[in-house]
Design a binder for these strands. Structure first.
Lengths: 193, 193, 193, 193
DNA sequence: TATGAATGAGGCTTCATTCAT
DNA sequence: TATGAATGAAGCCTCATTCAT
């Protein structure tokens, strides 16, 4: 019998699951496969995760939280709205690129639809943060008059598009600078050009 | 025994499959469910489609072709580049909204990744068409200097983001006009503003 | 609609069935395959044969009858017992070699066990004929004293072995002359050597 | 849940399979039937055998090996060629009679044709052993001049015929002594008679 | 005599989960 | 905390046979 700390075992399972889910999708990955990859018995899996679904959900939640604390939260500290948006794009796209495996898991898990409640909540917070930045930009006359809510949505959709391309067609990934440039030059007031 | 024309039966199957796949995903839909919904026997399904995968692939191909002939091809007839882009966005986003069910099928079928060969080919053609429009715009000095390839990618990613939102969070869908406005005001040369 | 004489259609079906059954066995051959090979509709098959089993049975009966009339019956006309046995072996083995396809059908159809009633009846007749030849040989002092029944069985078993080899391992087929030679030299009285 | 040793379970499956396959043939036996007879769950079957075919193949291989070590190998230890042949027939026919069930499995499994590669290899070894015995017999002048290869084939075909009768018509089984007698009296040189 | 779409029972196989050890 | 044999429901697919035309 293999003796390991609980923490160690848990990590092994998570790593194995990330690898396999992203390779073969949720349905294409069996619990036996995960157990084998993690070097743990099938039964052992169930000591750490109630079932397969819960394991998958855990992976998703974990990544969402990381994104929130690494990308979104720091945005609040940036005084310049345009600077904040640049930062948002740079960081978010980079994050997507670096976490390809996990994004694929999101994708293959019911087409990004798994854990939808959690995700919606998350998106709402993201939207709020962006809205606030844009509103600040309008107030400071950096940005032209526009509907902050709509623009926030657009920005998030662009990130979404990027995420989708990461999964489906990496060759179609655009350069962040190009995106930011086009977006900003349109958002900035004529007098600022 | 129920006598129907082959065409009729095929259509029933396709309709049932669209409905069920979008509701419950590929794995969540059983052949028995499809047969029942289509009012056909299980064996009958296999008279028209070799297997479940082929049926799903058919739905996807069919929609891709429709998009190509309804949205992309007509773009070539529009002389004004900016007008063409407007048209592209309007039509593409509308198409996405109207075909929610089928998009969900794409999504749930291996996270947009099923039938990837066909899709990549399709995206390539789409990118070419957009690139051509942008190049024309640059040449006619309507658009500012930029990398047509990169911009084409960005545009497609935005559509992609919209498509993703259709699946994941319809509340996050942006207004096409806002998008076009921001995009164009940035693309157009300063002197055109 | 294809108009053919009933006889013609029946023959086509039989030929197709022989070919396919010997190639793929009874279970490996579907009615659709037979229909296609025969150039007839699936439904058409059932106009000539009640079901798949009956079709297979027909093939078997037909060949058994042919063997009886071509090989066994003529034996009765041969006055010399040893000559009759030679003839039996020569003809029977030749027949087996020439009808490989059909023998394979017998084999694959429940391991020679299909249509067992008919076959047993047939074997009984064959045994009787052989027994009679041997008895005659003993009476005429050509053959040494022996149990005709047992010897008849042995002879038939040798043919059976040959038949089996036709199916399983054609390289293992023995030369008829060798067989006859060994058998006869043993059966003949010492004084005849 | 029923706890058994792996060995125990495997044996139960094999025994059940032998019984059912010989009763109902390969296609006539379902995995559910085997599971039930073995007192094991359907899924359990697949813990020990990859699939139905593999299970059947196992039974065949196993018996072939047993025959080799119990019947063929000991032949090499017998100095007298005629004694060796007697032994071969006695043992082989006895073996066939005792393993009726398994022979029927061979028969019903594609008409003795399943696992053909393995079988051919086996037959080759058998033929070699017999050929060697006969050659020895010729050299020691016990047997008359003849082609050892052909005679070996004949002998094997006789066993084959017996095997076939075991399956098809047990009433047609000959007495081993009769067979040996006829065969040997012919093989032995006149001077030995 | 001929067609072939339709039927549906039933086979093989997979796999998440359990539980005795 | 760990094991892995065992479970059994459920999925995909096949195919002999029928019957309206």
């Amino acid at each position: 019998m293999n003796r390991r700390s609980g923490h160690e075992s848990r990590k092994r399972i998570v790593d194995a699951a990330v690898k396999l889910f992203s390779q073969s999708g949720f349905n294409g990955t069996t619990m036996r496969m995960i157990a084998k990859e993690a070097g743990i018995s099938v039964g052992g899996l169930y000591l750490y995760f109630k079932n397969k679904e819960e394991l998958s959900l855990y992976l998703i939640k974990e990544k969402l939280n990381e994104f929130y604390s690494k990308v979104l939260l720091p945005l609040k500290e940036i005084p310049s709205p345009s600077q904040a948006l640049k930062e948002y794009f740079t960081k978010a796209l980079e994050f997507a690129k670096e976490n390809r495996e996990l994004i694929i898991i999101h994708a293959k898990q019911q087409g990004f639809t798994f854990g939808i409640e959690i995700k919606k909540e998350f998106f709402k917070k993201e939207r709020e943060i962006l809205k606030e930045i844009i509103t600040r930009g309008i107030e400071s006359r950096e940005f032209k008059e526009c509907e902050p809510e709509e623009v926030a949505k657009l920005l998030m959709n662009i990130i979404g598009g990027y995420v989708l391309s990461v999964v489906v067609e990496p060759e179609n990934l655009f350069k962040p600078e190009v995106c930011i440039d086009i977006l900003l030059k349109g958002l900035l007031k004529r007098s600022n050009l």
